[in-house]
Structures are given as C-alpha cells and as structure tokens.
C-alpha cells in the first residue's frame, strides 16, 4: 500500500495542481487581460534573446510532443499500429535527447542573459525568478531521465507505469502505486511539475495559451466599429471593464 505521503503526492497533489491551473487560468483570463502578455525583454537585448528563445521554445515544443506521446498515448495504441517497442524507444531517445540539448542550451543562454544584462535583470520580477527556478529544476530532472537513465543507464519503461497512472488521474482512479515503483528521479520530476503548473497561471507563461495561430487565416487589415455590442436587456451579472 502507498503511504500517506505517496497518496498526497500522487493522488491529491495532481488534482490540487490541476484545479489551481485551470481556475487560475480562467480567473486570469477574465480579470487580467491587460496583464496577459509575453512581457518581452527584447527591447533591451536582442542578439542572445533570439538565439536562446528560439532554441528554448522549439526545444520545448519537442519536449511537450514527447510527453504527449510517452504519457498520454497508451502502449497498446502504438502496438496496435504495429510500432514495436524498440522503434518507440529509439524515437523517444533521439527526440528526447535533441529536446534536452535544445531546452538546456536555450535556457542557459536565457538565464545568463537575464542575469548578465543590467537592463534585463532590472526588469526581472519575483515571479520571473520563480519561473526560472522551476524550469531549471524540471528540466535538469528531465534531462537526467532522458540522458542518464534512458540513453546511458539501464533504461526505464515509464509507459505502463507512469503513463498508466497519469491517464488514471483523468478517469478519477488515481493509483499512486504505479508511480512509487518508478526511480526516485521520476517521482521528483513529477512532483516539481505539479508545482510548476500551479505557478503557470500567475506568471507570464500564460502567453503560451495565446499562440496566434489565427493569424494564418485572418485578413491582413482588421476593421472594428467603435460602436460597442449592445448589452443584453436583463442580465444578472457582468464582468466589469472587459470588452466583449
């Protein structure tokens, strides 16, 4: 049986984190549109930002795709498609290693830039620092899993254990024992990630949810009337100060 601590970390914390994440995002979106921005520091420094941010973001996309493939997609599905475990393992090792290199290098450039450049450092807030710390913790642990455990170590098949547990969270059947058998490094990585998700809605990271894909389809010049939409006649309540 899982101990109380394990239940808290792998049975309760995920739901707390997901609630904070979702409610936080909705709250922020409704009440802080003005604060919803990348808060770019490119005006202060450009060269290293382009190098670091390009590597970090594209590496992060690869890493996110890898997590979706590894944790959300059950092993049975890839097997049903006729993809053998060896091929999956190879793809995840190559893709994972590339992602680790890009994310670590990118974040390293961005970190040095943020602390090395006077102007950028002066514009750094407490939340920014927290984001950097959480990112580094999460990424170092992830890198140790990908490179330390899987590339050079004994390897660990997280798909039947951690993947199963993660999907179980969404069926409302959390089973901490699936995780407690995993190497400790995986358990810490998961726990840090939940705290990262709790920080997410309150940081500039929210800009990820504004990825402007609509730009590909929209006409170039946007026209808008200064006439606002008419409010409904009988409304019980209405958000103040937010344009519809």
């Amino acid at each position: 049986m899982a101990t109380t601590m394990q239940w808290l970390l792998f049975g309760v914390l995920p739901y707390v984190a997901m609630t904070v994440f979702l409610v936080g995002l909705i709250w922020r979106y409704r009440f802080d549109q003005y604060g919803w921005t990348t808060r770019s520091s490119q005006l202060y420094e450009k060269r290293w930002l382009i190098i670091g941010a390009m590597m970090f973001h594209y590496g992060a996309f690869l890493a996110i795709a890898g997590h979706v493939l590894g944790i959300l997609v059950p092993e049975q599905w890839t097997e049903a498609l006729g993809i053998p475990e060896s091929l999956y393992s190879l793809v995840s090792k190559v893709g994972g290693t590339i992602a680790v290199v890009m994310v670590v290098a990118g974040l390293a450039v961005l970190t040095v830039r943020r602390w090395g450049n006077d102007r950028v450092r002066a514009a750094t807030t407490g939340v920014d620092i927290a984001v950097f710390v959480m990112l580094w913790l999460m990424i170092i642990l992830g890198a140790m899993e990908t490179i330390g455990v899987n590339d050079f170590g004994a390897g660990y098949n997280y798909r039947p254990s951690i993947g199963e547990w993660f999907r179980g969270l969404f069926y409302l059947q959390p089973d901490p024992q699936l995780v407690t058998g995993a190497p400790l490094i995986y358990q810490v990585h998961i726990t840090v990630a939940w705290f990262f998700f709790m920080l997410f809605p309150f940081s500039r990271l929210v800009h990820a949810f504004s990825a402007p894909v609509g730009y590909l389809l929209r006409p170039y010049v946007v026209y808008r009337s200064r006439k606002p939409a008419k409010p409904q006649k009988e409304r019980k309540w209405q958000t103040i100060g937010r344009s519809r």
Binding site: S210, P212, Y220, V222, Y223, R224, R226
Partner: peptide, 14 residues
Amino acid sequence: VSSCPSGAMYKREE
C-alpha cells in the same frame, strides 16, 4: 495591423 499576429490592432470603421 497586418503584422499583428494576435489581431489586436485595428482600423476603426467610422
């Protein structure tokens, strides 16, 4: 306006 990815910039019709 045409460069804005978010569609946040606009030209007023009136």
